[in-house]
Amino acid sequence: MAEGKKEQQLIGGEIERSKAEDLLYKMVLTRTFEENALEMFALGKVHGTMHVSIGQEAIAAGAGPALKEGDYLLNTHRGHGHFLMWGGDLNLMMSEFLGKENGYCRGRGGSMHIADVESNNLGAQGIVAGNLPISVGVGLSIKIRKTKQVVLTLFGDGAANEGAFHESLNMASIWNLPVIYLCENNQYAMSMAFERAFRIEQISDRASAYGIKGLTVDGNDVIAVHQAVREAADRAREGQGSTLIEAITYRYQGHSKSDRQLYRTRDEVKKWMKKDPIPRFAKLLDIDEEGFNKIEEKAKVDIKNAVDFAENSPEPELSTIMEGIYA
């Protein structure tokens, strides 16, 4: 780590201190958002389903912030963290989560489809691997417009076994498209364990089959993810095409609200909790218990305020139900 004044330090040789502190806060905020969301479900305040990323926050913290303004994001169903890291407004996000008219998608999308096209955030995704072919189009669009943007496409280990994965990576490769494929390998596709669904050691091994660069990083390490995504973006901008990054992580909670988690042991979950990315990043930033408690307190207050904001926001009018289908 670089010596010198605290604010000038480049954390892990990669991220400026002030930015890193903000990322830590947003990691805590993501977790608080999701814990609060689980509570709201339990209390019956929200309906439907949602997918929390508790335990996986380092990937979001490392990925989006490694890109530049104007780049594109194609998110997954487990994307609250990525949404916040992309600059999402907490209040409007909470409004969308509660299905309110002033939410990002006017309450039509909810947690699973939240998007902010204005900031080139092209949405979370309800279909596993559904965003992979779309990234081909975004990549082509960038290439034809010659704008030097890149697209960050997120997906899980489950998506790597969909046919769309193959079509997408092959097309991105042959046309040298500026797509960063970031696979969040959290060890389970719903109940399907990685070991049962793959006969390879690493999903990134598949990159060589498409003639693109592939690498596996510790997905619980903000710095490692940031570096991998930043370097992939640099290569893409220089016309060197796509990269497949596999980030190894673990989801502590079930797949969705209905998951009884019969496919794994409590011990396994506990083992991974020891590698929790949040205390790990706090430690890297030399933040003591008192400092960390302050961050947690701030996150709780911000979430509470966002809930108040959303709960006091208007429901969509029934008369608007047919709006937004066609331009």
């Binding site: 092209l122 072919p133 189009g137 082509l140 669009s141 079509e167 097309m171």
Partner: peptide, 28 residues
């Protein structure tokens, strides 16, 4: 070839290319 794009046999990829390119300002 930049505007008349021959693809591999990848129908989902073709449709996805249309979705992604159109939502980012093209008219495929």
């Amino acid at each position: 070839p930049e505007r008349i794009i021959d693809t591999p046999i990848s129908e989902a990829g073709i449709a996805g290319a249309c979705v992604g390119a159109s939502v980012t300002g093209m008219r495929p």
